[in-house]
Every structure is written in C-alpha cells, then in structure tokens.
C-alpha cells in the first residue's frame, strides 16, 4: 500500500513536470505575447497542481498538505494577476495579436 502511494506520487509529479515543459515549449513556439501567456498560465497552473498533489501524497501530516495547497492557491493568484497585467499593458500599448491560421 505504501509502495502504491509512493509510485502514484512520483507518477503524478513527473506528469506535472511534463506540463511545465509543455508550457515552456509553448512560450518559445507561440507567435505573440498573448498566446505565450496562454501557455504559461494554463500549463503551469496544472503542472503546479499535479506537483502539489504528488507532494501531498508523500506529506507526513495534514498541516503540510494545507501549506502545499495554500502555496498552489497563491501561485495561481500571482500567475493570473501578473498574466492579466502583462496582457493589459500589451493591449494598451496597441500590440496586435497574430491573426492565426495554422502557424
């Protein structure tokens, strides 16, 4: 049982790390500031959630789980707000979005 939990924790955390990789690839490949923000906010939110979930499975007590969840919430708040501010400033400066098609 302990082994199963350990394996699940590692699997979930590796999956979370893969989402961080995908977010970073998106940041490099996507064409403009707005689409790059998409990659960062969403992939990192999910990656962070999976990391927190994996670490919670390994946590020795509920207080640590609470702390991890709180960290996740605050990273999400910081991510959403900073992403909004970058997008708003780009919009106010008149940065045009790429029109798309298959890029």
């Amino acid at each position: 049982m302990e082994g199963v939990r350990e394996a699940l924790a590692v699997g979930v955390m590796v999956l979370g790390a893969l989402f961080f990789v995908a977010g970073s690839v998106g940041m490099l490949r996507f064409p403009d500031v707005y689409t790059r923000l998409h990659a960062l906010t969403k992939a990192d939110n999910l990656g962070m959630g999976l990391l927190v979930f994996g670490l919670s499975l390994q946590a020795p007590g509920w207080q640590l789980v609470l702390k991890l969840v709180l960290i996740w919430i605050f990273v999400m708040i910081a991510g959403a707000i900073s992403c909004h501010l970058v997008a708003r400033e780009a919009y106010r400066q008149g940065v045009k979005p790429e029109q798309g098609g298959d890029l």
């Binding site: 893969l18 989402f19 995908a22 977010g23 690839v25 998106g26 490949r29 996507f30 064409p31 403009d32 707005y34 689409t35 998409h38 990659a39 969403k42 992939a43 939110n45 999910l46 990656g47 979005p97 790429e98 029109q99 798309g100 098609g101 298959d102 890029l103």
Partner: peptide, 17 residues
Amino acid sequence: GVDVAWRAMSPRMRLRP
C-alpha cells in the same frame, strides 16, 4: 492545461487567436 500543452507540442500548432 492539456489543451494548451497539446497545442504547444503538436508539430502543426493549431492556433486561431
């Protein structure tokens, strides 16, 4: 997360922003 990760990793990025 899955949606944007998939778009980022697929060879033909399907974006219509």
